[in-house]
Simulated scan of single mutants.
Amino acid sequence: MIASVRRAAAVCVLAACTAAPSSCGAQRAPHIPARPAPSASAAPSRPPTLAPGPAGLTPVFSHGPRTRGRVVALTFDADMTAGQGPRAAAGEHFDNPGLIAALRALKVPATVFMTGRWAEQYPDQARAIARDPLFEVANHSYSHYAFTGDCYGLPTVPEERMRADVERAYTAFRKAGVRDALPYFRFPGGCHDRRSLRALSGLKVTAVQWDVVGGDAFATDADAVARQVLDGVRPGSVVVLHCTRSAAPVTERAVRAVVPELRARGYRFVKVSALIGAANGRPTLEK
């Protein structure tokens, strides 16, 4: 019970802090382009997605199979809202290059859910993450505004602009040089309902949630974050953490503690795409 409260509070605090009063200003952008067809000699490269839900709703993925070995996906939300430019200009750090360097040093594959505004603010970092085969980039909206009402104090995106907000993020990625952003979408705050799932159905994305909350939002005790992750991980888990120094300052230290311990327990780290592929019945998870 205490862990559940702590997890909910951590997500609440992060979402409320990143809220900004300005409009998200989302404009309709071109649809997400299809990836080029592979050559006859090349293996198919299209990332796995889940089939649509009932009535064609956007499918939701929370964890991989529990019986396909000790694998776990670490995911990191690179949060920045549409109205936080002045805070970044004043010196607030919404990035975390130390965390990315730690993941590289530890050779841990990971999925980064990036907002379009973050990619605009840190285009060099966004491009470097996307080009590193250790990582994959997915969509966390452009504005980091909520897709439902009453989502931890976040401003909300009107239903008629939800799809445009997601498309605008993909456009921001392309402008930053991120050309392989995956068709995975994480709702800001994790908040979604039937209306928002229906609004995004035409994009053919898979909504990615989680089953382990890292609790790193504004945490000051890296050991406590590490314990929360280690206590929650099960085979096939998706762990949500953050890639934002100002909002999650101890994440790097927590990851440095979590990774060797999970490896000692026999876990292997994979990207979210590998877990979704396993859920689709692919014979093996990526090495």
Rank of each mutant, 00 (worst) to 15 (best):
184 Y>N: 06
94 F>W: 06
173 F>I: 07
198 R>C: 02
136 E>T: 01
205 V>Q: 08
3 A>T: 14
71 V>M: 05
266 G>I: 10
46 R>Q: 12
277 G>P: 05
195 R>H: 15
55 A>S: 14
39 S>R: 15
69 G>C: 05
251 T>I: 02
202 G>E: 09
189 G>R: 02
199 A>M: 07
120 E>M: 03
207 A>W: 07
283 P>Q: 03
211 D>M: 11
150 D>R: 15
34 A>Q: 11
33 P>E: 04
118 W>N: 00
136 E>R: 02
65 P>A: 06
215 G>R: 04
217 A>I: 04
179 R>S: 09
274 A>L: 02
260 P>E: 07
58 T>S: 13
72 V>W: 06
256 R>A: 02
86 P>T: 08
225 V>C: 03
152 Y>F: 14
179 R>D: 04
251 T>C: 00
140 H>N: 06
10 A>M: 11
117 R>T: 07
110 A>D: 03
2 I>H: 11
172 A>N: 03
201 S>M: 06
266 G>H: 13
227 R>H: 14
78 A>T: 06
56 G>A: 10
75 T>G: 01
282 R>V: 05
138 A>G: 09
124 D>I: 00
254 A>E: 08
191 C>S: 11
39 S>N: 11
252 E>S: 00
20 A>H: 15
63 H>N: 10
156 T>V: 15
130 A>C: 10
20 A>W: 15
56 G>E: 10
283 P>D: 02
152 Y>P: 00
20 A>N: 15
267 Y>V: 03
168 R>K: 12
19 A>D: 14
144 H>W: 07
62 S>H: 13
227 R>I: 08
20 A>I: 09
155 P>W: 04
73 A>V: 01
123 P>C: 05
47 P>H: 12
101 A>W: 00
186 R>A: 11
53 G>C: 12
248 A>H: 10
229 V>N: 00
185 F>K: 05
201 S>K: 13
190 G>F: 12
184 Y>S: 04
12 C>L: 10
268 R>S: 08
86 P>D: 09
76 F>V: 01
107 K>I: 03
174 R>T: 12
171 T>Q: 14
153 G>Y: 10
178 V>A: 13
14 L>E: 11
194 R>W: 14
268 R>G: 10
260 P>F: 15
37 A>I: 13
235 P>I: 03
187 F>H: 05
270 V>F: 07
274 A>G: 12
283 P>R: 07
258 V>S: 04
